[in-house]
């Protein structure tokens, strides 16, 4: 992975996932060190994403690296009509690695072919967000002690949610049992189910968000977004069905952890936050260590 861009979760093998997760554990023990001293990392956010940007920048800063970049393309020459290609070629001259977020799908792959330095994709439209997937996997491994033989429940928008798609692809390399809980309008697309069929992995689809979750090791919540519905009445009906409340966790497994890529709106009620099974804020902190592991691996510093 040294010198290679990370654009899609499929760019890494199972062994490479495990290597990143091991390294992330080492950075968690000692997140502040000078390993990136003398390095310049560019963070190019052509659309705003405050949490992701801060996580990357914190990761780099804690390791002693310097950041250049922008958090909104409105303040750059992209607004004067500069092509992505030119921006990437120029910033390649100024930095050792580029972290980019862009609303156009496939933009990160294209950039990786234009750039003379490695690209880390921090989200290209609805397509890929691989560092999110790796931090999800790190959170799963850390809380469950393993990635093998787990029962993962995904809840909410399974049709458009890129985080659940990427997590499914990555976790399908381990012997995972999947459960999909969603309204009919937002079901897991067939191509992902066919992928699981091909691998002989079990999955179950549910419409109702009930005590079925008592079997879960991981409960992965997502946001049901209003703009996904053509019928506003349907949205009003559905939006209150896929909400996790504290009492629903009563009979769940001891080792269960609730994950969410954040931001959350109302799909997890605040009373869950104090439950020991709520893990989403720690999950966000894990993102820093995972990104430290990714950036330093690509720069060949470990």
């Amino acid at each position: 992975m040294v010198g290679k861009s990370l654009v899609s979760i499929d760019d890494y093998t199972k062994d490479e996932y495990l290597k990143i997760l091991e390294l992330a554990a080492r950075y968690e023990e000692q997140p502040r060190q000078g390993i990136l001293q003398g390095y310049v990392i560019a963070t190019l956010f052509f659309e705003p994403s405050t949490r992701t940007r801060l996580s990357f920048e914190s990761a780099v800063n804690q390791l002693g690296g310097r950041i250049i970049g922008f958090s909104d393309s409105g303040t750059t020459s992209a607004s004067k009509g500069e092509t992505l290609r030119d921006t990437i070629k120029i910033v390649s001259n100024y930095s050792d690695l580029i972290v980019m977020r862009h609303p156009v799908e496939g933009s990160a792959r294209w950039a990786s072919e234009m750039a003379s330095v490695p690209i880390v994709n921090a989200g290209d439209g609805a397509n890929q967000h691989p560092t999110q997937t790796l931090l999800d996997m790190y959170s799963i491994k850390k809380t469950q002690g393993t990635l093998d033989g787990l029962s993962i429940f995904m809840v909410g928008d399974l049709k458009y949610g890129r985080t659940v798609h990427s997590l499914l692809m990555a976790m399908s390399k381990f012997s995972t049992t999947f459960h999909f809980i969603s309204p009919d309008e937002l079901k897991m697309p067939d191509e992902y189910k066919q992928h699981l069929d091909k691998l002989g992995l079990a999955y179950h689809e549910h419409k109702d968000f009930t005590d079925i979750i008592d079997e879960a090791d991981i409960l992965y919540m997502t946001r049901v977004q209003k703009e996904r519905f053509s019928d506003p009445i349907e949205y009003e009906r559905v939006k209150n069905v896929y909400i996790l409340k504290n009492q629903m966790l009563e009979n769940t497994k001891e080792n269960l952890k609730v994950l969410h890529p954040l931001p959350r709106v109302n799909e997890i009620t605040p009373d869950v936050d104090d439950n020991a099974k709520a893990y989403y804020f720690t999950q966000a902190r894990n993102g820093v260590y995972t990104r430290q592991a990714i950036i330093t691996s690509i720069l060949g510093l470990n």
Partner: peptide, 10 residues
């Protein structure tokens, strides 16, 4: 339609 090949003529 949101693909880079349709957006930037790649």
């Amino acid at each position: 339609p949101m693909c880079i090949t349709n957006q930037e003529g790649v």
